[in-house]
Design a protein around this nucleic acid. Structure first.
Length: 738
DNA sequence: AGCACGCCGACT
DNA sequence: GTCGGCGTGCTC
């Protein structure tokens, strides 16, 4: 290896380029032959030769020399005249790539709209302005060109540039003539002053808690501040977001608003459009590629003043960013679960710090990590303790169902309560986090169970379709009518899913209209929206569903919520199980009882003495969180330690464990002081989709130690010669241990 | 990730 | 005798 001066005669700089490939390195090139390197800026795209073909790459920096054995190749084209990504965007990408152990090119290019990633040119700037020379032109020089004179007059009045309409000569040859003389040039149009548009009638007056939260937030809009807005469901968090948003907008800043899922994007969009005509760009995975690109460009140009979106919107380019809001910050959808496994909530914090702006996390059930950050003084806590409009918080009660005869998962007590509430003309909501008819089909005679051919999982019976589905790999087969082992016709579905519950309730309460909200019932587009609208209009009296029903939707006529099985989270393998369970219970409970109608929540459990559950019911989420954090601290689990999970999978059942063993050996050759290795072990779901899976957990008390190790270790793993065609991935701050 | 090179089965 | 299977190696 030697230092390669690119061209000793000219000392042409070296271009350091990121390319979209799973490679933990950047690539060095020379500028295209004869290109004026002074025009190059980080963040511009280049077309570069790469291997046998050509790729679009992103210029990271220019350097004086390269450490390389072979001569450098020339970039073939410079694709941008101005950087596609601003230095702040590059900085965020760098941080994310390092922290999440993902190659930089994958991060930076992978989060761009497809066509931009492939090198399609940016649309030409729409505005015109005078060049420096143009400003020196006197009226005398234009006496014989009245139309040119007219345009120059307009441009003089708009030194920052202006968009010319056709009647002003926007598309004319006049402009071309002026441009040929070097007097005018294209430019990006500055953001229009639309601040007036937000001054609209407000929907509600703020209560005292909202007002004081807003006051604190507004005072901090000038620089980096992180806040947790902890407000019980129905306490009016959204109203605080919107007021703060309006304030940031009138200060001329852009805002980024993240919500956990697409349905909440449209819900919030409608609410925002009711009170302001501010240009909003939506960014979420439901967009067509063209829409995504237009939204992205509108954010980048400053035309869109608000970006509203899900997880991936955290990377939207926002030149004038002044506020980030993360709604329902505890929601696990903020964590990407494949490929580049980032947490959009955590990156929102990083981005706000880098940009010196405010970030506001909102939740009724904050993540334990977030509460820990509040306790450490990293986030400022703002509370909204009361429900808006004087609504009474729902009463929570545990219902012991140990040795109780259940019907389709319902205890007699819960059925009685339902009868009473329905009779009184109220809505009832039942929550069961299992879709399908029965989670497993068995043979009563020989004990056969409906295992999945490709996974270590049971196939769920879906009665309406007469099919068995694997909810893990998606395999679907016709449900057998006779046992595949012993040919007995005595097949039996064990356990209950939402489909079975629906069937039972239709029989039990034929007089009341019922709606089921789960992934199966809402598969067709628009079905979810329709179902929710029907619920709001009061068309249904019994609502039943999975966690789809728990997210962000308000059902003021519901006075009874039944949670059929609270026990799933209590004794799960994942230490986050109880946190999830608590958040889900409180969120579902929050759907009930508004205004004049107090709600009641009945939680069926076989473990009514479970300490976390008892604390949650008796003293609320805050007390639960304190206890759960104490347990985490004693067990040295996150957020009191830091984890990374290395997963490996392969067709060859021996390969994953062997690969991970090699990985451990490799790590021990490096500086792995202060990092513990747990494993390698077979994954909890050891076989998935026909592949065998194993994992290795890394844990450390010091985030930097773990980060430093990953920084050198992962590139080594990537260059490991593939044995048995292993697929591996790293998950920093893992949420799931599957 | 792409992409080409490279050695072993069933087809015009 | 070729088309094509995917194993493996490389990308400034």
């Amino acid at each position: 290896l030697h230092i390669l001066p690119t061209d000793p005669m000219t000392l042409a700089p070296i271009l350091r380029v990121a390319v979209a490939a799973p490679l933990y390195q950047t690539f060095d090139y020379l500028a295209p032959d004869g290109w004026d390197t002074a025009t190059l800026r980080p963040g511009m795209r280049l077309r570069v030769p790469f291997g046998h073909g050509e790729r679009c790459g992103l210029l990271l920096e220019t350097a004086d020399c390269a450490l390389i054995e072979t001569p450098l190749r020339y970039a073939t084209a410079v694709l941008d005249t101005v950087p596609l990504l601003a230095p702040e965007d590059l900085a965020l990408g760098r941080w994310a790539a390092r922290y999440y152990g993902t190659p930089l090119g994958e991060v930076l290019l992978g989060t761009l709209p497809r066509r931009l990633r492939d090198g399609v040119p940016l649309p030409a700037p729409q505005g015109w302005q005078l060049t420096p020379v143009g400003f020196t032109v006197g009226d005398a020089q234009l006496r014989r060109a009245p139309r040119q004179h007219e345009i120059v007059e307009i441009l003089r009045a708009h030194p920052g540039g202006v968009r010319l309409e056709a009647q002003q000569g926007g598309q004319s040859t006049t402009l071309r003539a002026l441009a040929a003389k070097g007097w005018v040039q294209r430019c990006t149009v500055p953001a229009p002053s639309w601040a007036i548009a937000v001054a609209t009638p407000l929907e509600h007056t703020l209560n005292a808690a909202q007002a004081s939260a807003l006051e604190a937030l507004e005072a901090g809009l000038d620089g980096f501040h992180a806040y947790l807005l902890e407000g019980v469901t129905g306490s009016g968090k959204t109203e605080v977001y919107l007021r703060l948003l309006e304030r940031a907008l009138t200060l001329g800043r852009q805002a980024l608003i993240l919500v956990p899922e697409i349905a909440l994007v449209s819900q919030l969009l409608r609410r925002m459009q009711r009170r302001s005509s501010v240009p909003i760009a939506l960014l979420h995975s439901g967009l067509a590629e063209g829409e995504r690109e237009r939204a992205w460009l509108r954010a980048r140009s400053g035309e869109a003043r608000v970006v509203l979106g899900t997880r991936s919107a955290v990377f939207a380019p926002l030149p004038e960013l002044g506020l980030i809001v993360v709604d329902e910050e505890h929601d696990s959808s903020y964590k990407q679960q494949e490929g580049f496994r980032y947490s959009a909530r955590d990156l929102a914090l990083v981005r706000a710090r880098q940009r010196g702006c405010t970030v506001l996390l909102g939740s009724a059930t904050p993540a334990l990590e977030t509460l820990r950050n509040v306790a450490r003084g990293r986030y400022l806590h703002l509370g909204l303790p009361t429900r808006a409009g004087g609504a009474v918080p729902p009463r929570l009660a545990l219902l012991n169902i140990r040795s109780v005869r259940l019907q389709a998962g319902l205890s007699p007590q819960l059925l009685d309560l339902m009868e009473e509430r329905l009779g009184a003309g109220n809505q009832v909501l039942l929550f069961l986090n299992r879709r399908g008819y029965a989670p497993v089909l068995t043979c009563h005679d020989c004990g056969w169970v409906s295992g999945c051919r490709h996974c270590d999982a049971r196939m769920t019976l879906h009665k309406a379709e007469q099919r068995l589905w694997c909810h893990h790999c998606g395999l679907q087969i016709a449900a057998p009518t006779r046992c595949p082992e012993c040919a007995s016709a005595n097949l039996l579905g064990l356990g209950q899913g939402t489909e079975q519950l629906e069937e039972f309730l239709q029989e039990r309460f034929p007089a009341y209209s019922l709606v089921r909200i789960d992934r199966d019932a809402t598969r067709r587009s628009g079905a979810l929206e329709r179902g929710l609208a029907e619920i709001r209009s009061g068309a249904h009296r019994i609502l039943l569903g999975t966690q789809m029903l728990a997210k962000g939707h308000h059902f003021p006529e519901v006075t009874l919520v039944g949670i059929l099985d609270a026990d799933q989270g209590l004794y799960s393998l994942n230490y986050r199980g109880s946190e999830r369970m608590a958040q889900l219970l409180i969120q579902v409970a929050g759907r009930a009882g508004r205004a004049q109608k107090p709600g009641q929540v009945v939680i069926q459990t076989r473990h009514p003495d479970h300490p976390l559950l008892r604390v949650l019911i008796r003293h609320g989420y805050g007390a639960f969180a304190r206890l759960a954090l104490l347990e985490r601290e004693q067990a040295e689990l996150p957020p009191f330690s830091f984890q990374a999970l290395l997963r490996a999978e392969a067709i060859d059942p021996q390969a994953p464990l062997a690969f991970l063993a090699t990985a451990v050996a490799l790590a021990h050759n490096l500086d792995d002081q202060g990092v513990e290795f747990w494993g390698p072990v077979p994954a909890p779901m050891g076989r998935l989709g026909g592949r065998t899976r194993a994992q290795l957990l890394l844990q450390s008390q010091h985030r930097d130690r773990l980060q430093a190790l990953l920084g050198v270790w992962l590139p080594q793993l990537a260059s490991l010669k593939g044995r048995g065609r292993i697929r591996w991935s790293i998950d920093v701050d893992p949420q799931e241990m599957l």
